[in-house]
Write a protein that binds this DNA or RNA. Structure first.
Length: 228
DNA sequence: AAGCTCTACAACCGCCCGTCG
DNA sequence: GCGACGGGCGGTTGTAGAGCT
């Protein structure tokens, strides 16, 4: 039986106060991140270590981007979700300054609804049977906010649907195929810190980059800007 | 103006994984 | 190999505020 991460009787819950935020920020500035379990006591906070970690990562950390998601970010989230499923940390890793929690919330409150209104099942990104009348139907291709989505790409997910309980290994087998079909997505799935922005281009051989951009034909697509 | 419903999002919870002794 | 621990992740809940009746 493992110990609970903190003694719940002695911890505050709910919204963080300004004073608590300041204590946490000051402590981390002085001592750095880590040792979350012992941090609250050391920082003089009546909070669970996990709660401190979450607060820091999602809101207090420098360079955390707050506010509305841009169209390019939406586009990217949808594409990545189609590939990765609900692995928010991986998706957030490709969005500079965004956290998994924020991406997850945004998906659940905005993008799910948006896809459903377009007649797309947000769980598997398949076109549902009942496509709304205002949504033009393409033969074979569905336009997903700035990029055509090939049904062949979906096939892997149909065979291997990403379920809520899937772990990375389950769908990774699918990723390589998907990645090759979506050349505008860099699917280096090593997690990157939300900031500074990923510098994927740096390790990419120049010839390959040129080749990729010529394959894409449209190097100014919003999604691509995130990888530059 | 009051009450109700809906929406967005901050925060919590439980589980899983990697590491270490 | 095993268990404890710390950290991370994804699902879910709680709640404040907006919008509607």
């Amino acid at each position: 039986m493992r110990k609970p991460c903190c003694d719940k009787q002695d911890t505050n819950k709910g919204a963080w106060t300004k004073q608590e935020d300041e204590k946490l920020i000051n402590y981390i500035r002085a001592h750095g991140e880590g040792s979350w379990r012992s941090l609250p006591k050391a920082a003089g906070l009546l909070r669970c270590g996990k709660s401190c970690r979450l607060r820091w990562i999602n809101y207090l950390r420098p360079n955390v981007k707050r506010g509305n998601f841009g169209e390019d970010e939406e586009d990217l989230i949808i594409k990545l979700h189609a590939l990765l499923g609900n692995r928010w940390s991986l998706i957030a890793g490709r969005l500079p300054g965004r956290t998994d929690n924020e991406v997850k919330n945004y998906w659940n409150s905005h993008l799910r609804r948006k896809l459903m209104s377009m007649g797309i099942d947000p769980n598997n990104h398949h076109v549902s049977q009942r496509v709304p009348l205002h949504q033009p139907q393409n033969s074979g291709n569905v336009t997903l906010l700035g990029g055509p989505v090939n049904h062949e790409r979906m096939e892997c997910q149909q065979l291997n649907p990403v379920t809520e309980n899937d772990r990375v290994s389950d769908s990774e087998s699918c990723l390589e195929d998907n990645a090759s079909m979506l050349p505008d997505l860099n699917l280096d799935l090593t997690k990157s810190i939300p900031s500074p922005p990923p510098t994927v281009v740096e390790w990419r051989p120049e010839s390959e980059e040129l080749k990729a951009s010529s394959e894409l034909g449209n190097a100014t697509k919003p999604t691509l800007l995130l990888f530059r």
